[in-house]
């Protein structure tokens, strides 16, 4: 058959060094409507908040009293990173099954672990993309309002780590049947959000002092243990789907 010159950028693409699953997930993730629209909304919201903050400093000449704007901006970031982004993973393995992909992935010698880790790493990268893209606003606030950049960066890292753990949990839940997933969302995910997100909102600009080191160590241990536990369950669940899904059809 005659070869037609393709118009798509066949070589100007993701590097070969990246894991193919990561490339696939990033392509899908960066184009996902929920991600893109939320990303733009957060940026718009933060830009408006910073604008008002700058204006109020300009009018009043005081740098204090702008906490409300900062809190709003921080709330938008936390809601996106800790709630909206992990929610994307709630249907992650279901998407693979819907695409009849488990068999095809097995034939390409991918196991459940590779697939789940690929999806989890994509979640981390997407939350990183958002947080890095918001960094200029924080530096702007430092120059305009004299905000504590180190404290804010630590708070962002904290939110990022929460997002990673909640994404692992959502990946784990995605391997369950819809009714079981709904039950676990009600009894585990929502209570976790209630437990983790409000304190995170209060952290912004307040991470300092000697207690922070202890808090970070405790959090790291809890974070690592919980994340690995959820990922292991997710791998086990998806492995079962990969091997026995066809029997249910």
């Amino acid at each position: 058959m005659a070869s037609i010159a393709p118009s798509f950028p066949i070589e100007a693409d993701f590097s070969d060094r990246l894991n193919p699953l990561l490339v696939k997930e990033l392509r899908q993730g960066l184009r996902n409507r929920v991600f893109v629209s939320s990303f733009l909304l957060v940026h718009a919201f933060v830009a408006i908040a910073i604008g008002f903050e700058t204006l109020s400093i300009g009018f009043s000449g005081e740098q204090s009293g702008n906490e409300s704007w900062m809190a709003l901006q921080w709330a938008a970031e936390v809601l996106f990173v800790c709630i909206l982004l992990p929610m994307r993973a709630l249907t992650a393995t279901e998407d693979e099954v819907r695409a009849s992909a488990p068999d095809l992935l097995r034939l390409a010698n991918y196991d459940a672990g590779a697939v789940i880790f690929g999806k989890w790493k994509t979640q981390l990268l997407l939350s990183s993309v958002l947080l890095v893209s918001l960094a200029p606003y924080h530096f702007l606030r430092f120059y305009v309002g004299g905000a504590d950049v180190i404290s804010q960066t630590l708070a962002l890292l904290w939110a990022w780590s929460e997002s990673a753990m909640l994404s692992a949990l959502c990946l784990c839940l995605s391997t369950l049947r819809v009714w079981a997933r709904c039950i676990w969302i009600a009894v585990l995910l929502i209570p976790l959000w209630i437990t983790l997100v409000p304190p995170s909102l209060l952290l912004f600009g307040h991470i300092d002092g000697s207690g922070i080191v202890v808090a970070l160590i405790v959090w790291s241990v809890v974070w690592f243990g919980a994340t690995m536990f959820f990922l292991t369950l997710a791998i086990s669940g998806f492995d079962t789907q990969m091997r026995y899904r066809h029997l249910a059809e």
Partner: peptide
């Protein structure tokens, strides 16, 4: 698996993925 090609009886689709990207993903794999 290096010798075989498998075409299943059902075909699903990935959301937010083009035909080229689908083939490119499996070629990478």
């Amino acid at each position: 698996r290096r010798l075989i090609g498998w075409m299943p009886d059902s075909f699903g689709t990935y959301s937010y993925m083009t035909v080229f990207e689908y083939l490119d993903f499996f070629a990478r794999a």
